[in-house]
Lab assay of single mutants.
Amino acid sequence: MSGNGNAAATAEENSPKMRVIRVGTRKSQLARIQTDSVVATLKASYPGLQFEIIAMSTTGDKILDTALSKIGEKSLFTKELEHALEKNEVDLVVHSLKDLPTVLPPGFTIGAICKRENPHDAVVFHPKFVGKTLETLPEKSVVGTSSLRRAAQLQRKFPHLEFRSIRGNLNTRLRKLDEQQEFSAIILATAGLQRMGWHNRVGQILHPEECMYAVGQGALGVEVRAKDQDILDLVGVLHDPETLLRCIAERAFLRHLEGGCSVPVAVHTAMKDGQLYLTGGVWSLDGSDSIQETMQATIHVPAQHEDGPEDDPQLVGITARNIPRGPQLAAQNLGISLANLLLSKGAKNILDVARQLNDAH
């Protein structure tokens, strides 16, 4: 009898209710805020589980004197976190989706994509230029951005401005803007500013005609071990179906173009009346040469937790077992079709030249 009692006690200790789920994140304040929001949602869904947040620095956090596009290494903000995932030191990792490459290392998958916040870019102005827009900034004003995508589009749109690289986390960039006289304004992701509670610093939100956004911008991705079915089931509740389908289309477009950090590629997606609209573009580094096109596809946005595919093969690095396969494939095909259209119009040449120029500098 006593033996059975011990077995029952052991089973209770090993039951999922007692389990601590370890969540990996970057150390920056924004990353911690984003991770806290994901953990809060998981806690609400699984009140019996405990969650421990483990923060670590990544290569991208450490190399702050070089433009991201020049470092010449993929997975700048993800490699150390993936290493911890691989060694079973954490069970899942919360990322900004735009930091996750469209091809993940073997053994990993994006197990959830959370509801997207505003994906557009924002302009934050130096205190002396508050009330201005990019259009009304004085001639030769210097605007800071760490992104080739932003610089290429904005140089084309605002030729009277000069664009220079600015690195560091959000706090560091804002301090550089406010305390030094080098920059009249800087460009940042609206979602990051909003998550930090800095709505009052948003001086201008850039519309798609001015600057399309990065693939996955404004959404959070939760990376897990691809074979860890328990954790895949656990994080599945975080999937937002519309965000998922938009981001599958965007990531398929980028992957098929073979774009990345070192080339200016941008997108804009919208879901309306059962249609998914995808606009994508590529630019030369100075913005003088560009190709942009829009395509659409009829896609039914499923309700969360309709029964999805059981075999769960990944699409552009994403596993969404609780979302039907048909809409996911339709979104992926839309991204591939748009990429093929741009490639047929000469996108590869623009991107190759951009890559060579970026590598040469």
Rank of each mutant, 00 (worst) to 15 (best):
Q328P: 10
I350A: 05
R201S: 01
G280C: 01
K227F: 03
M295I: 12
I299F: 14
F129M: 15
A55T: 08
T102K: 01
L97T: 15
I21W: 10
L68R: 12
K74L: 06
S288Q: 14
A84W: 06
N358A: 15
A84S: 09
V263H: 03
L285W: 08
R116E: 05
K227W: 06
D61T: 01
E73Q: 09
E293R: 07
A339M: 01
A40I: 08
Q180G: 10
G144I: 01
A320N: 01
I231N: 07
N88E: 08
Q29G: 14
G107L: 09
D65M: 04
A303D: 15
R175K: 13
K348M: 05
N171A: 10
N322P: 09
L92I: 12
Y277T: 06
N200A: 12
Y277D: 07
K98A: 04
K227A: 15
P241L: 01
A266E: 04
N200T: 13
L334C: 13
S57H: 04
D65R: 12
L92K: 03
F158S: 09
R149N: 01
A44Y: 13
A191Y: 04
K140Y: 09
L174E: 04
T25K: 05
W198Y: 11
E306H: 12
E89A: 10
Q229F: 13
V38Y: 01
V282E: 01
R225D: 06
Y213L: 03
T102F: 03
V265L: 05
P138M: 12
P241Q: 15
T35H: 01
D289Y: 11
H199I: 12
V143R: 01
D352Y: 14
I231W: 07
E52Y: 10
R22E: 10
G203C: 13
T25A: 11
G131D: 10
Q29F: 07
H256Q: 05
Q180F: 03
L276P: 01
L134Q: 01
A320G: 14
F253S: 01
L100H: 01
G24F: 01
P208C: 03
G259A: 11
V235G: 04
E139S: 09
D91V: 04
L49Q: 13
G72A: 10
V222H: 01
H239N: 07
T66R: 09
N340Q: 15
T35V: 09
P119T: 12
G203L: 01
D311E: 14
H126D: 09
K62H: 01
L188I: 03
I54W: 04
M56G: 06
K98G: 01
I33E: 03
A44V: 13
T58P: 03
K345L: 11
K79V: 06
R201E: 01
K272G: 01
I33L: 11
A252G: 06
R201I: 15
T35G: 10
E209N: 01
L254V: 11
V263L: 12
E89F: 12
V222T: 01
L338R: 04
E86R: 13
H126R: 08
S37M: 14
L42N: 01
T294I: 13
V38I: 14
G216T: 01
S337R: 13
T41E: 11
S290N: 09
E258I: 13
R173F: 01
R149D: 04
G216V: 01
K74N: 13
G192W: 01
I54N: 09
W198G: 08
I248C: 01
D240E: 15
Q194K: 13
R149T: 01
A55L: 10
Q304L: 05
D65E: 15
K62C: 06
T41H: 12
L232M: 11
D312I: 01
V38N: 04
L76I: 06
R32W: 09
K115Y: 06
Q275F: 06
L285E: 05
V124A: 12
K43Q: 11
R321M: 07
L148D: 06
Q29M: 13
R251C: 04
Q304K: 14
A191V: 01
A252Y: 01
K140L: 11
I166T: 06
Q314C: 13
H300D: 15
G72K: 03
R201H: 01
G317I: 09
L238M: 15
K74S: 06
R164F: 09
R164W: 11
G131I: 05
L334Y: 05
L188C: 11
D228K: 03
L357R: 14
E82L: 08
T190F: 01
V38Q: 01
E162L: 12
D286W: 09
D240S: 01
D312T: 01
R195T: 01
V130P: 12
A84C: 07
N169K: 11
D312A: 12
H199Y: 14
R225V: 07
S184G: 09
A330P: 06
G287N: 03
S57D: 15
I248S: 08
E73M: 08
R255N: 04
L276D: 03
N322W: 14
V316M: 01
I33W: 12
R175L: 09
L193Y: 01
G287Q: 01
D228P: 15
T298W: 12
A55F: 15
L244W: 01
A189P: 03
H305N: 13
F125N: 08
L42V: 07
Q153P: 11
L232Y: 05
M56D: 14
N171Y: 13
K345Q: 05
F108A: 01
D36Y: 10
Q328A: 06
R167L: 09
T59F: 15
S37G: 08
G131H: 13
Q217I: 03
